[in-house]
């Protein structure tokens, strides 16, 4: 049953998600691919909308994916699934965990887990970049042939928007402002220079 599947998938995601919403993106992507629930660009749109709307990104994207897959019941199942591990863990073992956190064993484990979490966030970035910045339907062989003509395989408009957004972020611009600017840039580029921004 689809509701149980969503509940189970997002429970798993909540249970292994260390390091917040961005690390969860890789996990959600994995489940989406496994079950063939959504296309890559659909999922990236969901990430973008989750950024633009209030609330934790993890909860927002779980709710959205659930709704896309199975309507209102699906969004309830996915949201419940992603929140349940937190509730269960904290209600049952937070006292023990508080003490465990100060133990050397925990320090050793997190010495390895924290870099792995960084890797998950980086993988999410690569996943989004592949869809957002590369022209679709390109094989590696074609990529080799056309490496000297980046316009053939790269969305130059997308690269420019990404670079400008990164600069704006470094200057502490608010993410909502950046997304609004990118939307405007997308419309302008698409209308006046459609070859630069493949949709």
């Amino acid at each position: 049953m689809i509701y149980l599947q969503l509940l189970y998938s997002f429970f798993k995601i909540g249970l292994f998600a260390f390091g917040g919403g961005y690390a969860m993106i890789s996990m959600i992507q994995g489940e989406i691919e496994l079950h063939g629930w959504l296309s890559a660009s659909e999922f990236i749109d969901i990430i973008a909308i989750s950024e633009m709307t209030p609330g934790p990104i993890a909860v927002n994207s779980a709710t959205f994916v659930g709704f896309k897959v199975a309507g209102l019941g699906g969004s309830a199942a996915a949201t419940l699934g992603v929140a349940l591990p937190s509730l269960i863990i904290i209600l049952s073992i937070s006292g023990i965990y508080m003490r465990f956190q100060r133990k050397p064993l925990s320090r050793k484990i997190f010495y390895g887990v924290r870099p792995a979490v960084t890797g998950l966030v980086a993988a999410a970035c690569i996943f989004v970049a592949r869809t957002a910045l590369l022209r679709s339907g390109l094989t590696f062989a074609q990529l080799g042939q056309s490496l000297l003509r980046p316009g053939d395989w790269l969305s130059l408009g997308g690269v420019a928007i990404a670079a400008l957004s990164l600069v704006a972020l470094k200057r502490k611009a608010h993410p909502i402002l950046i997304i609004a600017g990118a939307a405007a840039a997308g419309i302008l580029l698409g209308v006046f220079f459609p070859s630069l921004l493949p949709v």
């Binding site: 973008a48 990404a162 990164l166």
Partner: peptide
């Protein structure tokens, strides 16, 4: 569609900054 093509590129930067 065009707006989201732009937004997707910005999401690369948002997640890049998170990395």
């Amino acid at each position: 569609k065009l707006a989201f093509a732009g937004i997707r590129a910005a999401v690369v930067a948002l997640i890049g900054a998170a990395v």
